[in-house]
Simulated scan of single mutants.
Amino acid sequence: MRRGHSTRGFGGVLCTALLIVSLMFALTFTSSAVAQSDGESSQGMLERFDCRTLAERESPETALAWLERSLWANHCYEFQARAVRIGADGVRALALSHDVVEGAEREVARFLDGPPVVFERRGRIGRLSWAEGDTSVPASPAGIAEHLDSLYRLRLNGEERLANRTTIRLDIEPLDDLRYGHHFWLDTATALPLKHILLNEQGRVVETFQITELRRPQLHQGEIDLDRPRAHPGDPWHPAWLPEGFIPQPVETRSSRHDDDIDHGVYSDGLATLSLFVEPVEGSDQLIPGMHRLGISHAAVRHRDLGGRIRQVVVMGELPPGVLLRVADSVEWQGGGEGNIP
């Protein structure tokens, strides 16, 4: 079972992790999608969203409304599917499933050819950012849609038949050259994304992900829990620069596959996501500084003097290489003591 990123075993584990992250991104539309319920309790009970309310909503008419509906659909529909992913590293077939068990989501992606890799994610609906004191944390697909609306140009581009279903195409074009563009084909009956094309900063297709068979999509007849507000863990480092709109994500990044001295942060604008790793440079098991190509993704590697020690900084994601390098070069350690190592 594969979960998350790792900087160990660059040629294998890291590449596989990025591949899995990209396919799960296509499955869930955005890992930062969150929700909000009116059921919040002053006694600390979990907030919940009732998926049955989606059946009562009017059909979307605008690109922004379709985006919001799709964010909800990705949480609330239970289904099984077959899909293909086409990228620079070849073609892979997958089996996908999504369901809700006792208020928690469960997603499974299984590669049907090549190395036998299975990815499983369980959890509640996440929140948009870390909590700070008593400040309310934005937590709704509407909030994410509005956030993306200030960073991308959204427009509808006609209907098309895919996987024997009618879809509407949603084009999402970045307003700057710091992130990639996207085309989504949304099932008009459920708003689930049936096809996704990722476009680089030159407008060239770098990945196509398409569901070829969607089996028994059913709206979950119940509620899904929201994650509790989480306080920032207070890492001693932080990126001094991020593309506009990127927010630190309140996700658990500790893993048994990471050494205790490997720190990991995740940042997202609600659509694009990058991972940042910081660890001491020790021994020979290190990455060569520079830019590395990993399928459709990139990894920027720097060896920096941070906190009085030489540390390896790795920034990964499906973003322009120059953006990843700039983020890696901007990492600062609280209290100074930093620099670049040639």
Results as ranks from 00 to 15, higher is better:
S32K: 01
A73M: 14
I172R: 01
V118G: 12
S37M: 03
A131T: 06
R85Q: 08
H182Y: 06
D113Q: 15
S136L: 05
N340R: 14
E279T: 06
P174F: 15
L64A: 07
C51R: 04
E282Y: 10
R169L: 09
T62N: 10
E56D: 04
L175E: 00
A189I: 04
L306K: 14
L23S: 15
I341T: 06
G290A: 04
D38L: 02
F184A: 06
G335W: 03
E58P: 02
H264V: 01
I296V: 14
W66G: 05
R161W: 08
E279V: 14
I310E: 04
P236G: 08
H147S: 00
E61N: 05
T273A: 05
L154Y: 01
I224V: 07
G337W: 12
A142L: 11
S136Q: 11
A95H: 00
V137K: 00
A81F: 08
R52T: 13
P217H: 12
S6M: 01
A300G: 15
R153N: 08
V205Q: 06
L306I: 04
R121F: 09
D149A: 02
D259M: 15
G11F: 09
G90K: 15
W72P: 10
R204G: 11
A328T: 10
E201T: 13
G322R: 07
F79A: 10
S255H: 14
E146T: 03
D329Q: 10
P342H: 06
D225T: 15
V301Y: 02
L199C: 10
I262S: 07
T188K: 12
T28L: 14
M316Y: 03
Q312W: 11
E173W: 00
H98V: 09
L287W: 12
S255W: 15
D149H: 00
S297T: 14
G270S: 02
G143Q: 01
E223F: 09
G308H: 02
M316F: 13
W130E: 00
D227T: 06
R228W: 07
D269N: 01
